[in-house]
């Protein structure tokens, strides 16, 4: 049986995060990536949950330039299980795709910005070398007018093709900042049909791909880890 993970929940405060975690459990997720900032990152770490929902600590970086990205990564990498970068400019996107410490790449949702910075072939080629994942947030497509949604869908379709061409893992998440924007795992996967993704592949994007990402990073964060295949004993 598949274990589904929603890697991108963005609750603003502790009350909201509790209700979103309960909702995730009710919707059938076994794990979530909870976006936290550096101040409130310990709020859910120590509390054992009755529903055994697996919570991965995630941070979304929004650097303005490559130098800011590098210094942020140095500061946060060992403290969070998932590090995502919102690429606001091409130099940041290129640096993020090149850096092994970045797990997930996000791109702007405004059409004008997306035309400038997108997951193009060069970006996909760089990301495939570092095993960096490309993320699709369903919330980016919700509450948009027909024109904006259709433009975003066509851009995302091309980006998914680029990701497939270079074997870049694709993760599908809700990107919800409130419970009403959360969707069930099979609904998230079914929405990927709009991007031309098949049923099994889209289900993998909500289950196996995010699970492997979290497990790989947890192994890296264990004491004694040196590099892939090398551990200090």
């Amino acid at each position: 049986m598949r274990k589904f993970i929603d890697l991108h929940l963005i609750p603003g405060d502790t009350d909201l995060s509790e209700s979103m975690l309960n909702e995730a459990s009710r919707l059938g997720f076994t794990g979530v990536g909870l976006t936290q900032d550096t101040r409130n990152r310990d709020s859910h770490d120590k509390k054992p949950r009755e529903d055994s929902l697996d919570i991965a600590r995630r941070i979304d970086l929004r650097p303005r330039n490559p130098n800011e990205l590098t210094s942020s990564l140095r500061r946060v990498r060992r403290r969070f299980e998932i590090v995502a970068v919102e690429c606001r400019s091409k130099p940041v996107a290129r640096q993020a795709a090149r850096d092994h410490r970045v797990d997930i790449l996000n791109f702007p949702t405004q059409i004008q910005s997306r035309r400038r910075v997108r997951f193009d072939r060069q970006e996909a080629s760089l990301a495939s070398g570092t095993n960096c994942a490309y993320e699709i947030n369903l919330s980016d497509l919700l509450n948009k007018g027909a024109y904006v949604a259709s433009r975003l869908l066509s851009m995302m379709t091309v980006e998914v093709e680029n990701a497939r061409h270079y074997d870049v893992p694709v993760v599908v998440s809700s990107g919800a900042d409130e419970p009403l924007l959360m969707r069930g795992p099979r609904e998230l996967a079914a929405s990927m049909q709009l991007l031309g993704i098949g049923e099994e592949e889209s289900l993998d994007m909500v289950s196996d791909v995010p699970r492997e990402l979290v497990e790989r990073n947890r192994r890296k964060l264990e004491p004694g880890y040196v590099s892939p295949g090398v551990r200090r004993v």
């Binding site: 009403l180 609904e187 079914a190 929405s191 049909q193 709009l194």
Partner: peptide, 13 residues
């Protein structure tokens, strides 16, 4: 067309 139905439900906000 179950997937289309699910996708349509997911887009209801």
């Amino acid at each position: 067309h179950l997937r289309e139905m699910r996708a349509s439900l997911a887009f209801i906000t």
